[in-house]
Design a binder for these strands. Structure first.
Lengths: 155, 155
DNA sequence: GTGCTTGCAAAGACTTTGCAAACTT
DNA sequence: AAGTTTGCAAAGTCTTTGCAAGCAC
């Protein structure tokens, strides 16, 4: 049962303290659950795992903490559209990621795309805007899946 | 009171016929309402306008037809995240569009980004996927708005 | 103690769906 | 006539919120 690494926990605690927020058992539970997620996860999946680790964690708490986790930089939100409400744990690399979403096998691939970042920035600045965040999403079809109903690509 | 141009209506009718679906007054109403939208619009805005033109159009009908309009290529969906459920009428140009979303003044700018398209395609094909759709979304801050509470940029 | 947090359940926002009547072809 | 479409209202899905009790500091 893998739980959150000390480093991340400390970083989150510091973040909370800096905002005058409190370090609670439920918050630890949510953070631990984060590390049982593989790749992309939903609020609900996170809740399930958090409750496995600490059944005092409620759905409301997960929803209330998700924005804090995003703000602290520990996770990021992935908005791919109406029926894909995902989050992902941030890796160390701060390079811009593009998401390739396979509409057949439902996998989401994170691709490094530093160039993209430059491009978006350039365009926005021409409009007089300061870039805060950007993402490239590519929806694609999976020929493997189409052919024999399964896809061997790893996520 | 601008209504849908003949060309678009015929194209939608043809699309419907090709799928064995029917041409109804309500569908015409929704299509007409499309042309009263400026830039980006929500399902609800479309409903309001459709009902102004033809009060027999219900919310359910709008929701049932939105996917057909997307499939026919007349409009496209813009998924920018949880609280931004937008659609937009497709222009003639089929070039790839990037969306720059200003988080201060809430405007959405469509920027042509043909190069981006090439990039996404290249990356996906390396993964063995066929690109169906892609979008670049840039969230930005508006200095004008920050300064004096309003933004003079036109959408 | 003060004031942030929590769980619960209710409320919200947006979208989908079952059904019988109405309409297109 | 056959099969699609509609409006309505109910149901769904995901997320947010009010409240009183409970904790962190």
């Amino acid at each position: 049962m893998k739980i959150c690494d000390k480093e991340t926990w400390e970083s989150f605690s510091t973040f909370l303290a800096s905002k005058g927020l409190r370090v609670t058992g439920q918050r630890k539970g949510v953070l631990d659950a984060l590390f049982r997620q593989s790749g992309h996860f939903t609020a609900d999946q996170l809740l399930q795992d958090a409750q496995n680790l600490d059944d005092s964690v409620s759905r409301a708490t997960v929803y209330r903490n998700l924005p804090l986790l995003v703000e602290s930089g520990i996770i990021r939100k992935i908005d791919i559209g109406h029926d894909n409400k995902f989050y992902a744990v941030n890796g160390r690399s701060e390079t811009f990621k593009a998401q390739v979403i396979c509409s057949d096998c439902k996998k989401i691939f994170d691709i490094e795309a530093p160039f993209m970042e430059w491009y978006g920035k350039t365009v926005s600045e021409k409009l007089g805007l300061n870039v805060k965040d950007q993402r490239l999403q590519v929806h694609a079809e999976c020929p493997d899946f189409r052919k024999d109903g399964k896809c061997k690509k790893i996520n």
